[in-house]
Simulated scan of single mutants.
Amino acid sequence: MNKSHLQYKSIDEYHQCFDAAIQKKLQELRMAIQKAAPQATESISYGMPAFKLKKPLAYYAVNKNHIGFYPTPNPIIHFAKELASYKTSKGSVQFPLDQPLPLSLITEMVLFRTKEIL
């Protein structure tokens, strides 16, 4: 399901490649990022939705069984306890497609990254 090899012109175009249930999750994720960092700019980078605020703020991508959220390494380290029930790596976390997104945690992570950048 990872379509990062495709070329997208916008986040809306990226979202439209998925079924309605996934589109809803992606829009919730996008809105959580926008709410936490309204000054961030949106783009497509590395074939996935990206948000920047002078520096990379966060990215996300749909994979076969999860949405990968990439807020860079420091938020993953800082929120390690809250992320314990999810699969994580140095700069990413996997949110299973069959579970609701932890939108308040995502918001906190984006706020943390925003403060880090500014």
Results as ranks from 00 to 15, higher is better:
1 M>E: 08
1 M>Y: 08
2 N>L: 06
7 Q>H: 14
8 Y>H: 07
10 S>D: 10
11 I>K: 04
16 Q>K: 15
17 C>D: 12
18 F>W: 07
19 D>E: 15
19 D>L: 09
20 A>P: 02
21 A>Y: 03
26 L>I: 10
27 Q>S: 10
28 E>K: 13
28 E>S: 12
28 E>W: 03
28 E>D: 12
29 L>P: 10
29 L>W: 06
32 A>M: 09
35 K>M: 06
37 A>R: 01
40 A>N: 02
42 E>M: 08
42 E>P: 06
43 S>P: 07
43 S>E: 05
43 S>V: 03
46 Y>Q: 04
46 Y>L: 10
48 M>A: 07
51 F>C: 02
52 K>H: 13
54 K>M: 07
55 K>Y: 03
56 P>H: 13
60 Y>N: 03
60 Y>G: 05
60 Y>P: 01
61 A>G: 14
61 A>H: 01
62 V>G: 06
63 N>G: 11
67 I>Q: 02
67 I>G: 02
68 G>Y: 06
71 P>K: 04
79 F>I: 07
80 A>R: 14
82 E>C: 04
84 A>W: 02
86 Y>G: 01
90 K>T: 14
91 G>D: 13
92 S>F: 08
95 F>S: 00
97 L>F: 11
98 D>F: 10
99 Q>N: 08
102 P>F: 03
106 I>P: 02
108 E>K: 15
108 E>Y: 00
111 L>N: 14
112 F>I: 14
113 R>P: 02
114 T>E: 07
116 E>V: 07
117 I>C: 05
117 I>P: 03
117 I>R: 09
118 L>M: 14
118 L>G: 14
